[in-house]
Nucleic acid binder design. Structure first.
Length: 195
DNA sequence: GTAATGATGAACT
DNA sequence: GTTCATCATTACG
């Protein structure tokens, strides 16, 4: 049955689900992006996660079923999109950090104000900007839309690199960032360490 | 009610 | 390499 999105694979533990999102296609409002970089946020036990201090109105969606979208506003100006993973009750999610625009190129260029293709979705805020994802898209069921996710054939693990997460000041040592090795759309690393 | 804090991006030296 | 705009969310009174 084509078109009937099966996201049940995302119910597995977040560190297994995260690399499966590499190569997946996220669509919204005329633009499609192939995901090239993600980060795992592993539930209430992860101090860097928004769910790390228990359930709040904002983090509640992370406690829900897999395959939903979690959108938040970072630093007052940039939206970031996550895919909720794991079984219901486990507050894990995968941050979509970067991707390559594969459809709706002109629309994405207009939204981003640049024509440099590899910069269109290079970074979580830019990715949301290119796709037109906003706070109102929080909690979207990715099987239904308006934001949708299509999982393809899992990429070869040999093509995937791992490393520490970007911009986090806690649990900065765990290699829970996954990206396609050598892909030009992968964002730059920035340490979250304070001093 | 007030204040501190960022899972960033853009601009600048 | 560094600085800073900007506001939803959270913690606290």
């Amino acid at each position: 049955m084509p078109g009937s999105a099966d996201l049940s694979v995302l119910e597995r533990p977040v560190l297994e689900a995260a690399p499966l999102l590499l190569g997946a296609v996220l669509r919204h409002d005329g633009v499609a992006v192939r995901i090239t970089e993600v980060e795992a946020y592993a539930g209430e036990a992860d101090p860097a996660s928004h769910a790390g201090r228990g359930m709040t109105p904002r983090s509640a969606v992370m406690f829900g079923p897999a395959g939903h979208l979690y959108v938040y506003l970072a630093y007052g100006a940039n939206f970031c999109a996550n895919v909720v993973t794991g079984p219901e009750g486990e507050a894990s999610a995968v941050l979509l950090r970067a991707g390559e625009v594969i459809e709706g190129l002109e629309l994405a260029q207009a939204r981003r104000g640049t024509s440099v293709k590899r910069e269109l979705a290079r970074g979580p805020g830019r990715l949301c900007s290119a796709l037109g994802i906003r706070l109102r898209d929080n909690r979207t069921d990715l099987r239904v839309g308006p934001v949708t996710l299509e999982l393809g054939v899992p990429v070869d693990p040999a093509l995937v690199s791992t490393g520490p997460r970007v911009g986090v000041s806690k649990a900065a040592d765990v290699p829970w960032r996954f990206w396609l090795t050598g892909d030009p759309t992968v964002s730059a690393y920035r340490s979250g360490a304070k001093g």
